[in-house]
Each structure stands twice: as structure tokens, then as C-alpha cells.
């Protein structure tokens, strides 16, 4: 008991930020804020605007979770994290959920004691080269100098790809996208490799985007998804089904514009009714109220809306849906049934 009292005293003195407790949901509710780990700057996925308000595709997932749990999409405390400290921050309880374009891999899910709750963006590592180089395939890159934004899986994928194809290369590891961009544009490297979404975002800001091509090869699978701590399944379920609710909403045609109307009374589609809480009581099964999904969808829109608003073809980043289209349209985005 002494321990508790001392920790309580420290908490009052403002020293402890968090104690990773058994129930993240209770913590979040008591705190009234969701602590969300994001990248300190990744175009389209998370970036602060001039007022210091965070925006982006990853940010939107956190806002949806906050809306579902707390009923307020602005009740989120965004914690910018580097690649190196992100998992430690999650393990220590500094953040409740990590939405920082993190690749779902076996060892992270098991050895690092993380739980991936789904995939919000299917990415893959790609290559960008100047058109003038006349390269049409990554296999033509024998002896090329490759600018690589150091992450965690990019170096490994690159090494594996070149080794598998038995061609040589010279890596130039770069810490930030801004520097990699500068090096690539100055011609210090022939190729720039990072996640394809990042390549598209980068190319969009060039003075002459048309002078550069993104090669057809995608050399890795990078399923990016939000992560929670291993062991708190209740919280994991909430995060996972909030993401699924956004995906299902798009499939069912529920948007931020019509969600209120659809949730007002039961519709003819029973799945919509279950999702929006007008039929059954799915919310109670994950420890929330019946309106949770309505709030999550109303916060920023369904999956498709979020995509179009943050990274879609009409934004400066201009990403096509591709793999991230609904399964009904040939993509991989697929929510398990709400039943």
C-alpha cells in the first residue's frame, strides 16, 4: 500500500505521466483525453498546421477512437514520436495508441509485445527515379546509388531485394525526408526509395513532378496500422472495431453527412442498424454506448472520406485508392461483419 501512496504523491507533484494500468479504457475515460503517438511530420499522415492542430490520415484514426470512447474527436493529446522511441512510449504507458505508419510484422506483434489492430493503409516500398535516367524497372538499377530514408524495415527490404536479384547498389541512408528530397533533386543519388505513399507525396511537391517516375516494382509489403499494448484486449477491441466501423461505414454508404440521419431511426439495412446502434447492442459488448460508431464516423467521415480528405487524388499528395480500395472494388480494405 505504501507504494500506491507514494506514487499518488508523485502523480500530484506532476511527476508521473502515466501508470500503465490493466484497463486503458478506464484510464482514458478518467483522463478525458486520448494520448496518441504520431509521427512528428509525415505529409498526409500526420502534420501540425499553423495553429498547431494536428491533421492527417493517421491522426484521423486517433480522432475517431477518441470520438468513439470520449464522444469528442478533439479530446486527443498528440505525442510526436521518432521511430526509435515509439514502441518504448507505448510500452511505458505514455501513449494509449500508436498511429505512426507502423508496419505490421511478425516479430513486432510477438517479440516486441505489441498488438496491431488492423491495417489503415496498405503500403509498399517503391523506387522513384528521374525520367531522364531511362530506367523502367528496378532490376535495371545495377550499381545505382540509392537514397534511403532510414526507417526500420526499409533498409532490410532494400538489402533483401538487391541480394535476391543479385545486383549491387550503394545505399545513402538519410535521416529525414527533407534531406532525402534535397539529395535526390541534386542528383546525389539516382534513386529514392521509401514507402510508395511517401514517394508520391514527395514527388507532388517537386517543381517539375513530371520529370520523375515511380517504378512499377513494389519490393515489400508494408501494411501500416495502429498499434496498442499487448495484453489489454478490451482496449485493443475498441481500437480495432473503431477502425473497422470506419471501413464498414464506407462499404455501407454511411458518411459523415448522412450518419446522423441514418442513426436517427432504424433503416432497412440491418447491418447499418447494428453498426449505428439502432438495432442490437454492439456498443455494450466493447464497453461503450450504442452511439460509439456514429460518433467515430461523424468525427471525420468514413474510411473513404478520410482517405480523400487527407491523401486522396484531389489533395496535393494525390494517392489513388489502389490496394486501399474496398474489397468490393478490388482492394484489400475489408471489415469483418458487424454482427
Amino acid at each position: 500500500m505504501k507504494k500506491s501512496i507514494m506514487l499518488g504523491a508523485l502523480a500530484v507533484a506532476g511527476l508521473t505521466a502515466a501508470s500503465a494500468s490493466a484497463s486503458t479504457l478506464d484510464d482514458v475515460k478518467a483522463r478525458g483525453k486520448l494520448n496518441c503517438g504520431v509521427s512528428s511530420g509525415l505529409t498526409g499522415f500526420s502534420q501540425p498546421d499553423a495553429n498547431g492542430v494536428w491533421e492527417g490520415f493517421d491522426v484521423a484514426v486517433c480522432r475517431a477512437v477518441a470520438a468513439a470512447v470520449l464522444g469528442d474527436s478533439t479530446a486527443v493529446e498528440f505525442v510526436p514520436l521518432t521511430t526509435q522511441v515509439r514502441f518504448t512510449a507505448l510500452a511505458s504507458g505514455e501513449i494509449d495508441i500508436l498511429a505512426r505508419n507502423t508496419t505490421w510484422t511478425f516479430s513486432r506483434d510477438t517479440d516486441l509485445k505489441l498488438d496491431f489492430i488492423g491495417v489503415n493503409y496498405y503500403d509498399g516500398q517503391g523506387f522513384m527515379v528521374p525520367k531522364s535516367l531511362g530506367v523502367t524497372s528496378a532490376k535495371d538499377l545495377d550499381g545505382a546509388t540509392v537514397c534511403i530514408q532510414t526507417g526500420t524495415t526499409t533498409e532490410l527490404n532494400l538489402a533483401d531485394f538487391f541480394r535476391a536479384n543479385n545486383i549491387s547498389y550503394e545505399p545513402i541512408p538519410i535521416e529525414t525526408n527533407a534531406e532525402a528530397q534535397q539529395q535526390y533533386l541534386a542528383g546525389a543519388c539516382d534513386v529514392y526509395t521509401t514507402d510508395a505513399s511517401g514517394l508520391a507525396a514527395t514527388r507532388a511537391t517537386f517543381e517539375a513532378p513530371g520529370d520523375h517516375v515511380i517504378l512499377p516494382e513494389i519490393i515489400s509489403k508494408e501494411p501500416l496500422g495502429p498499434v496498442v499494448r499487448h495484453g489489454d484486449n478490451e482496449w485493443g477491441d475498441i481500437a480495432m472495431w473503431t477502425l473497422n466501423a470506419l471501413i464498414a461505414a464506407e462499404e455501407l454508404g454511411v458518411t459523415s453527412a448522412n450518419v446522423e440521419e441514418l442513426a436517427a431511426a432504424a433503416t432497412t439495412n440491418p447491418e447499418i442498424n447494428r453498426l449505428l446502434g439502432t438495432e442490437g447492442d454492439l456498443g455494450a459488448m466493447i464497453g461503450l454506448d450504442a452511439q460509439w460508431a456514429v460518433r467515430a464516423i461523424a468525427a471525420g467521415g468514413n474510411y473513404g472520406e478520410l482517405f480523400e480528405k487527407n491523401i486522396g487524388v484531389n489533395t496535393p499528395i494525390g494517392l489513388a485508392r489502389g490496394l486501399n480500395a474496398q474489397w468490393t472494388e478490388g482492394g484489400l480494405i475489408y471489415a469483418p461483419p458487424f454482427r
Partner: peptide, 11 residues
């Protein structure tokens, strides 16, 4: 871990 395969290249 120092004895495991590194998997990355160094220029």
C-alpha cells in the same frame, strides 16, 4: 543479438 544476422547494408 550481436551474433544474429544483421540484414542491412552499410555503404
Amino acid at each position: 543479438f550481436l551474433g544474429n544476422r544483421s540484414g542491412y547494408d552499410i555503404n
